[in-house]
Design a protein around this nucleic acid. Structure first.
Length: 464
RNA sequence: GGCGGGUUGGCGGAGAGGUUACGCAGCGGAUUGCAAAUCCGUGAAGACCGGUUCGAUUCCGGUACCCGCCUCCA
């Protein structure tokens, strides 16, 4: 069996991956807060961990992997949007409006991530469906002295967990020195974080031993991963930005609530996304969603390919030039493999992926296979990477147009030109065809006209 | 201020202590009436300064610059 090696944020080293139970490899990835369309940065962890999910299934077997990715549907941004709708006169209770907003966003998310070729996880739990577990976990943490209730809040006592800060490499004292934490008079320690907070009438809330309220952000992942994957599981993933404080707090809560488990064995963090060399942000005006790109006609498969060009632990720069290259490569490969039956994935590709998800190396191996004409191997390997899937390829198929009249005309003109040595008429027609996005292939054997990516039927019409 | 990461040829982007990454672009050739497409070939790198070593772009230290998180935009 192939040994997968992964860089574990917990140890800061590349380690051999040894699952707790190879008949049920368990992975939890932090999913989106569902208040709006997923932006391009949201899509990176989705693709990264989709590749890992596919690799694990390839190595351990389709039925031997459990992949969980949550939806955070309790959040102040969602509340704000629901409240805005209510004030705008949309009928329904606040809870109903919140639910409507999250359902709508989840449907968008599914559609957009499906377009990127990401397989749906085995479980996609929603925070609102696990409030009971969160309350129970919070109660347990209070009982064991790791949390305290005060003024309707429940706070986690950071000093009660000796390894707090280990994942992100900081000590509690370091963090306080940096001191950009919310100062609240009821906190025992400035670093203590919220497990439960009170809700006003304009916020969604659930009954609890501490009054009507809602959970803090971090507790949901601890509760849901425990419920679905157990006290100890194999892999926990997410964006690097989540390492602190989100994952640090998850570890503290879970370790203290379940002292006999050891939570996640391997922590994986993908680096951030940039756009044309800069951080994507609304203020820089380079902020866009996955749907924006799809609507511009950039296929999801092309977006996926661009993501795979960069190793997941390096910052990835989204550029138009990369999209252009990715599209050209995919067109070539799709054309070459259209009629080919996939064989088995290439060893070179599996080895690259097994080496800490080296997707760039895997793509290079695909290029090598293309150079050798091993299209069957290329196809099988590409499918493992979530590329060249038949269902994703409609964008690359040539427009169904009849160019036989133009072809014949060009043949006639060329035949005449061969005799007269005056090629001006041939060149004129050829130039017009090229302008219309038609590729002109002339050889001794004949002439072939192929509609290309920029094919424009209107310009062709003008030639008639 | 604290913590972490990065700096590879024109561009993108990997691995490996010594032997070709790979792709795009470029250049040369084949092919073509000329092109396109295709095929063949090819030049080009490792921020800077030290150290370890027979040998470092690859290991160690320092400098410069860039980036991320600590501010619920992943």
């Amino acid at each position: 069996m192939v040994t997968i090696r992964l860089t574990n944020s917990k140890t800061r080293r590349k380690e051999d991956f040894r699952p707790i139970d190879s008949s049920n490899v368990r992975m939890y990835v932090c999913g989106p807060t569902v208040y709006d369309r997923a932006h391009l940065g949201n899509a990176r962890p989705v693709v990264v961990f989709d590749v890992l999910n596919r690799l694990l299934r390839h190595v351990y077997g389709e039925g031997h992997v459990t992949y969980v990715r949550n939806f955070t549907d309790v959040d102040d941004k969602i509340n704000a949007e629901a409240l805005r709708r209510q004030k705008a006169g949309v009928p329904g209770t606040l809870e109903e409006l919140i639910h409507g907003r999250t359902e709508e966003t989840i449907a968008w998310y599914h559609a957009d991530m499906d377009a990127l070729g990401a397989l749906r996880p085995d479980h996609e739990p929603r925070a609102t469906e696990y409030i009971g577990q969160m309350v129970a976990m919070t109660q347990g943490l209070i009982a064991s002295g790791h949390a305290y209730a005060v003024e309707g809040h429940v706070l986690f006592r950071v000093r009660s967990y000796k390894d707090y800060g280990k994942l992100s490499g900081r000590s509690v004292d370091d963090m306080i020195a940096g001191a950009r934490v919310e100062v609240a008079p009821y906190k025992e320690d400035p670093m203590d974080f919220v497990l439960w907070k009170p809700s006003s009438g304009e916020e969604p809330g659930w009954d609890s031993p501490w009054g009507k309220g809602r959970p803090g952000w971090h507790i949901e992942c601890s509760a849901m991963s425990h419920e679905l994957l157990g006290e100890s599981f194999d892999i926990h993933g997410g964006g690097l930005d989540l390492q602190f404080p989100h994952h640090e707090n998850e570890i503290a809560q879970s370790a203290c609530a379940h002292p006999h488990g050891d939570f996640a064995h391997y922590w994986l963090h993908n680096e951030m996304l940039q756009v044309e060399g800069k951080k994507m942000s609304k203020s820089l005006g380079n902020f866009f969603t996955v749907r924006d790109l799809l609507d511009q006609g950039i296929p999801g498969e092309v977006i996926r390919f661009v993501f795979l060009m960069t190793h997941y632990r390096s910052p990835m720069d989204w550029t138009a030039e990369k999209a252009r290259q990715a599209e050209a490569t995919l067109r070539k490969w799709r054309a070459a493999t259209a009629e080919v039956a996939a064989s088995a994935p290439l060893v070179s590709v599996i080895e690259a992926l097994a080496d800490d998800l080296n997707t760039a190396g895997a793509l290079a191996a695909l290029h090598v296979a293309a150079g050798e004409g091993d299209w069957a191997g290329l196809k099988a390997s590409a499918v493992l990477l979530g590329l060249l899937e038949p269902a994703m390829g409609s964008w690359s198929s040539a427009p169904d147009v009849d160019l036989s009249a133009q072809t014949q005309r060009l043949i006639d003109l060329r035949a005449a030109a061969m005799a007269s040595k005056d090629f001006s008429a041939v060149d004129a027609l050829k130039a017009a065809l090229v302008t219309a996005g038609v590729e002109v292939r002339m050889s001794k054997a004949g002439i072939e006209l192929v509609p290309g990516p920029d094919f424009d039927p209107a310009k062709l019409e003008a030639l008639q």
